[in-house]
């Protein structure tokens, strides 16, 4: 099984610890992971901004980097969804199609491919899970609150395997945090208002730690938390699952 690690650009640059935790977690679960060195970005920032046409060469690079692997795994639901929905390469569409089918967000790779039912990990704390929208609704990592489906949540399922974790319930479990890519700067006022609602929800329910499947949502909320000096630690779910406290 050849598994490639796809590290989103902003994680690479600003949150290397999240990628390291992902790598350690996968390695500990017996997966041999390669990191294709020439990878850059999935192209989502341009595409969501309306400039899909400017992602062509970025996409081509992505295909070159990730073709030939059995699985491509990434600690980001949003980037994975973008690849799944929008990765095309007119010079190598077959490879692009294969990649779209083989790309997995970390949690779903653990629950659906590795079928993990036991994690040797400990973490003490009251944890709020932010279900990033692209993972939650786009990749269906969990049952969205709008749909009338039996409840499930892959990230939650994994968190519950970690000893010592206490999950706090939220008033609006899968409400968007307001990050939204360029939205967070073009609609700053609304974006911040949305983020603040999330923070209120965490605080009302006594969360000490905020986690999620997407560092982008967490970066936005962490920015607010730090500015307001709130007593909430922010960690990517890979860090908790890896038990590296």
């Amino acid at each position: 099984m050849r598994v490639a690690l796809f590290v989103p650009c902003y994680v690479d640059q600003f949150y290397p610890k999240v990628a390291i935790a992902t790598l350690h977690l996968l390695t500990r679960l017996g997966v041999e992971v390669e990191f294709p060195a020439g990878q850059t970005c999935c192209g989502q920032p341009m595409a969501n901004g309306g400039f899909e046409d400017y992602t062509k060469r970025c996409n081509r690079n992505f295909v070159q980097q990730f073709q030939g692997y059995d699985y491509i795994v990434s600690p980001s639901g949003s980037c994975v969804l973008h690849v799944k929905d929008h990765l095309h390469d007119d010079t190598n569409e077959t490879a692009a199609t294969t990649i779209r089918q083989r790309v997995y967000e970390l949690c779903e790779f653990l629950t659906d491919v590795l079928k993990v039912d036991n994690l040797d990990a400990r973490f003490k704390g009251k944890v709020a899970l932010h279900q990033g929208c692209h993972g939650q609704r786009g990749l269906q990592l969990g049952s969205p609150s709008e749909r009338m489906l039996p409840f499930f949540s892959k990230p939650l399922q994994l968190l519950q395997m970690v000893q010592g974790v206490e999950i706090v319930p939220l008033n609006r479990g899968d409400e968007c945090c307001g990050f939204g890519g360029t939205f967070c700067v073009t609609e700053e006022a609304v974006s911040v208002a949305m983020g603040n609602s999330k923070l209120n929800d965490y605080r009302q329910n006594g969360a000490e730690v905020l986690t999620g499947t997407d560092m982008s949502c967490l970066m936005h909320q962490e920015g607010l938390i730090k500015r307001q000096q709130l007593p909430i630690r922010v960690m990517h779910i890979a860090e908790i699952l890896a038990g590296t406290t």
Partner: peptide, 23 residues
């Protein structure tokens, strides 16, 4: 000037990127 920073802090900047660490 930067709408990100009006009400949000930026993340702490790490010494190394992941790829540098990996290398």
């Amino acid at each position: 000037l930067n709408p990100w920073g009006r009400q949000r802090d930026l993340p702490d900047v790490p010494e190394q990127s992941f790829r540098e660490w990996y290398q």
